[in-house]
Design a protein around this nucleic acid. Structure first.
Lengths: 198, 198
DNA sequence: TAAAAATATGACCACTCGTCTAGTATACAA
DNA sequence: TTGTATACTAGACGAGTGGTCATATTTTTA
């Protein structure tokens, strides 16, 4: 096994554990000590694998999006299903994860960190932003497909509609955490079905 | 001047200064030291005026909503203007404040703190939540008015539509901070005008 | 096998955190 | 003027912060 691979496996273990802390507690409320304790790794090792806490957060953001949105986006590429249905499947999948897997508690790591850190860490802001842009453009292209296919009569520019839906989803996640309830997510699904993707 | 009044004036000064810090930096990134320094008050005094940092945050939330939404809601009560126009005026006012007054940097204190603290402080979660519910129901009642008046043909339950619009607005604020741009807010305005309040 | 490079370790640094106590200043009643 | 109650504050407290480093151990290379 190559050195760099072994190195990456170790670093990945740290990220796996630390990501959950960052996700549920936020950046400032998660200490490096919390992370190494959770991963069962000595403190000194942390700074062998990561340049800083900020560097760790950025690597966690990258892993998070890859892990959470990789499978979700495979849905969007399945050409045997109509474009509109693919969009609905994507949102359905994401909202079920939010509701069931995490009990309406965590929201989205990217959104959480963007909200907490955008003003204070340009690096974190950029890390989230570039992923978000990628997601928006993927969704926009399927919306456009559905519009051309005649499945969505809404004539708004696809990229604006995609941006709006993603924003609405983000807000629904904030409210979900605030209300401790799945209502905002369910309401989001109802309204994109009945109004936005009509 | 009565003692309790003097007391409240002093406490209010602390809140005025500290609220801006809480708003722009978040809860965990704002220290009690920051707050007292900004207000020019000795550190020891902080705990004379407030039970704890959490208590301070809750009082700040209350003042924030009263200050920010008081004038905005007067718009909603002006019966000389049609209900739909009142809604658009409200959102126009709020988005202009976000864009111009704070340079797309701060977002909403309530939303910021809900996102950061909902899981970790039940008291803060409740403080924001109760204000949010009040706002939603005010907006819902004007939507209902507009629906009855025939100005809004959208037949969704007013309360669900209000909740969705507020959530979409929250998400737009998160994205505004993340992108450092007014686009999410402008896009929000365009879509509520052309789709949701149609 | 020996030398060299990579990795592991936890004590430690300087600093900041939220909180609290012991005390000083002030106002007012006697 | 004095005594007392209230209003206020300085500074210390213990805990915790992100980060460093000398040293120890393991792995690779020669």
């Amino acid at each position: 096994m190559s050195k760099t691979l072994k190195h990456e496996i170790k670093a990945d273990g740290l990220i796996d554990k630390g990501m959950m802390l960052l996700w549920s507690k936020g950046y400032n409320a998660t200490s490096v000590n919390d992370i190494v304790k959770e991963a069962g790794v000595p403190k000194g090792s942390f700074y062998f694998y990561f340049k800083s806490k900020e560097d760790f957060a950025i690597k966690s953001i990258e892993k998070y999006f890859q892990q959470q949105f990789g499978p979700a986006f495979e849905l969007l590429d399945n050409k045997t299903i109509s474009p509109k249905q693919r969009l609905l499947d994507l949102y359905e999948l994401r909202s079920n994860i939010l509701k069931e897997q995490f009990d309406c508690k965590m929201g989205c790591l990217g959104c959480n960190l963007a909200n907490e850190m955008a003003e204070h860490s340009e690096a974190i802001r950029n890390a989230v932003h570039s992923k978000t842009e990628m997601i928006k453009s993927k969704i926009a292209s399927v919306i456009e497909e559905a519009q051309n296919y005649g499945e969505i009569s809404n004539t708004l520019p696809a990229i604006d509609l995609a941006a709006f839906m993603e924003d609405a989803g983000r807000g629904a996640m904030v409210s979900m955490k605030e209300m401790n309830s799945a209502y905002p997510i369910d309401n989001f699904m109802t309204i994109i079905r009945s109004v936005l993707l009509k």
